[in-house]
Design a protein around this nucleic acid. Structure first.
Length: 306
RNA sequence: GGGGAGAUGGCGGAGCAGUCAAACGCACCAGACUGUAAAUCUGGCGACUUCGGUCUGCGUAGGUGCGAAUCCUACUCUCCCCA
């Protein structure tokens, strides 16, 4: 028999955290965060990581455990999360995975192909080639090596072109051939994926409010502290850092920083929605229309069959 | 009261007679995505469209000219300087 696992996805600010905690109470679950930024220490405010008091006694995993100087990745997340899932199930509880990092969630659910990781050296060299000979030059290289993945990548998407080339150098196999043999938790457990959503207007409204809130809570101070430390490439990308950095460097005032933060968060939410929409397994629940209670009831009944 | 500058699509802002439905940026919409993913990249963005085009458009009203967002006249409004 396979154990049920809940996955709650959705754009930033829809209220995933809150629902996850309530669901955990209802069905005796523990929460695993699939969030690339809430994982970092010292990033409480800008990542809106739930504070211990807000967790209502529900155990949360993979929150605030990583030093900002360290890099996080879909692979690391999925390895750690898979391990936590086993432990939670052993305790007789239901794992609830929630977060907005779509790639991380997918890596866990569907698996991520084994890879030696990355090589800054290779990346640098390839990026240099692109700078010198143009994007199309690198893209041409990829077309020769791995035409199938080249077809899926836009010639200007250097990040991906470089990664695909890097994979080939590192593994001596193409990304395409590696991608075929992945195994995720979907092959072991009974996964129920839920998507939380609301009207775009309502979501944007929440994002705006939340951003104002972040400033009241001391986002500027937090970013100042973070900037004083060494930040990994991944940690540095958290929304809030560059926007507030501009204010700290007196390039603009705090109102402008807020505006930028709101804008970039809205854009992020939109991208998340695009990503999640592509996954047809997601059962979408409109929290604005249905209300919290119904959403929770539906989730619980799908998980426990009650 | 006198002198000067300007009014462009949701906003900012180019264009200064034809190749202009009008650069670029922003906002917004849509999409792609497997080790940087809160990242990276792509497309759309006046209206209508049988996707070939068609129509309406650059403050308002006229005029010149084969042709105007671009030139002329009047008007309206805005800004700046001197009183």
């Amino acid at each position: 028999m396979s154990h049920p696992i809940a996955v709650i996805l959705g754009p930033t600010a829809v209220g995933k955290t809150d629902i996850a905690i309530k669901l955990a109470k209802k069905i005796n679950g523990e929460i695993i965060s699939a969030d690339s930024m809430q994982a970092y220490k010292g990033m409480t405010i800008i990542s809106r990581r739930p504070r211990p008091a807000e967790r209502k006694g529900i155990p949360h995993h993979l929150l605030g455990f990583l030093e900002p100087s360290c890099e996080y990745s879909a692979a690391l997340f999925s390895k750690m999360a898979a391990f936590r899932i086993k432990k939670i199930i052993k305790k007789g509880k239901i794992p609830i995975i929630t977060g907005g990092s779509g790639l991380y969630a997918r890596a866990l659910i569907d698996g991520i192909f084994p890879s030696k990781g990355k090589s800054e050296k290779i990346r640098k060299r390839l990026a240099g080639l692109a700078a010198k000979n143009g994007n199309l030059f690198l893209y041409g290289m990829l077309q020769k090596i791995d035409p199938l993945s080249a077809e899926k990548i836009h010639p200007n998407d250097m990040r991906r072109v470089i990664r695909a080339l890097e994979i080939y150098e590192l593994e001596k196999k193409t990304k395409t051939s590696l991608g075929e043999k992945t195994k995720g938790i979907k092959d072991e457990y009974e996964i129920k994926i839920f998507g939380l959503n609301m009207t775009r207007d309502a979501l944007y409204e929440r994002i705006n409010k939340r951003t104002d809130c972040m400033f009241q809570e001391g986002a500027v101070k937090e970013v100042k502290r973070l900037l004083g430390k060494k930040l990994s490439i991944t940690a540095r990308k958290a929304i809030g850092i560059t926007q507030i950095e501009g204010y700290l460097k007196q390039r603009y005032d705090t109102e402008k920083a807020k505006e930028l933060l709101k804008r970039d968060t809205r854009r992020f939410a939109k991208r998340q929605l695009t990503w999640f929409r592509a996954d047809k397994r997601i059962r979408w629940l409109d929290i604005g229309k249905m209300g919290e209670k119904r959403v929770l009831d539906i989730m619980a009944s799908r998980l426990t069959g009650m």
